[in-house]
């Protein structure tokens, strides 16, 4: 048994709680989708929870994030409502986006979540623009920009990093590298020494981190966020993780190397954290935590099931802000 301080204990349990909320949300959504309750496809981040949980643990509520098509975890870690998110996946009126966005387009501006994005690399420019907005308005908040390893090969990656570095904007670029760009092993179509080297080429402060070690991610993010608050220019985290599910819910991932996959299953970030907390003699706290999370997820599922479908006339509403009647 290892003795740890009270603050460390609270922090570790909070990180585990966030990861569990993401994991259980997605596992339940996966079942609901297969049962036909969720009408659209899902891109699950199961296995990658430590990146969302670790990075967002370093952020304040007023900070902003942009996300990807695989964005449930980022939204949850940033504090979006599980009930509203589940209702959104169910296509219900009480969803985060009133049932009009769906899994790939969840946005919750009330918690600084500027939107998942259906286009790879689509969030990069938005994140940099948002950071510029924060700068202009004199805010001390920062923007964290999640994107995948696939986005690193896109033009907007260079354009966005260059802009942020040139103008020393407070953007934390987070490359959530799960090894696969859709169905293609990213290494097979990618040149050079990796994402961090590309950031290095633009003189952006960067670090490579084990993306399945939530404490390592949280430590790296905290250090980078501290720099950003000091207005020391953008920062870059390359978090190496692994996608335990397919690209979409329909993808069995038959193109993956079986041996690598088995090895990665043992590096499940939640499994690793549980082992650590067991070593720290926190099994009881973990059990309590698990039960709370199950309650939260059950409530979200029940809420989504009970929610009404969007009214037909809502299909025509909110196309534009037409202002209030005088």
């Amino acid at each position: 048994m290892t003795a740890i301080g009270q603050n460390e204990r609270i922090r570790a349990l909070a990180l585990l709680r966030t990861m569990l909320r993401i994991r259980r949300f997605e596992e339940v959504a996966e079942i609901a989708q297969r049962a036909g309750e969720i009408p659209g496809t899902l891109h699950l981040s199961i296995g990658q929870e430590a990146v969302a949980a670790g990075v967002c643990s370093a952020l304040e509520r007023t900070d902003l994030i942009t996300s990807t098509h695989r964005g449930h975890g980022h939204s949850i870690a940033k504090g979006a409502s599980l009930v509203a998110m589940m209702a959104e996946l169910f296509g219900r009126a009480s969803g985060t986006c009133k049932g009009k966005g769906g899994s790939m387009h969840i946005a919750d501006f009330s918690v600084g979540m500027l939107g998942a994005n259906g286009v790879v690399g689509g969030g990069l420019g938005i994140a940099v623009g948002a950071a510029q907005g924060l700068r202009v308005r004199g805010s001390n908040a920062i923007t964290a920009c999640f994107f995948g390893d696939g986005a690193v090969n896109r033009g907007p990656f260079l354009e966005s990093l260059n802009w942020a570095a040139t103008f020393r904007l407070p953007v934390l670029f987070v490359c959530e590298d799960n090894g696969f760009a859709a169905f293609t092993e990213t290494a097979r179509v990618t040149a050079g020494a990796g994402p961090a080297a590309r950031a290095e080429a633009l003189d952006i402060q960067n670090v490579v981190v084990d993306g399945n070690d939530v404490i390592a991610v949280a430590d790296a993010a905290s250090a980078m966020v501290e720099r950003l608050r000091r207005k020391a220019g953008p920062a870059f985290i390359h978090a190496q993780t692994y996608r335990l599910r397919g690209h979409t819910i329909a993808d069995q991932g038959a193109y993956r190397d079986a041996e690598t996959h088995s090895r990665q299953e043992l590096r499940d970030p939640i499994l690793l954290m549980r082992q650590r907390l067991t070593d720290w003699n926190l099994s009881e706290d973990m059990q309590k935590l698990q039960l709370q999370v199950e309650d939260d997820i059950s409530a979200a599922l029940a809420g989504a099931r009970a929610a009404v479908f969007p009214a037909p006339e809502s299909a025509l509403a909110e196309v534009q802000d037409i202002g209030a009647p005088a």
Partner: peptide, 12 residues
């Protein structure tokens, strides 16, 4: 098609 971005919900 209706003059709106495509809504997600199946009925819409």
């Amino acid at each position: 098609g209706a003059d709106v971005p495509m809504p997600y919900a199946a009925n819409l």
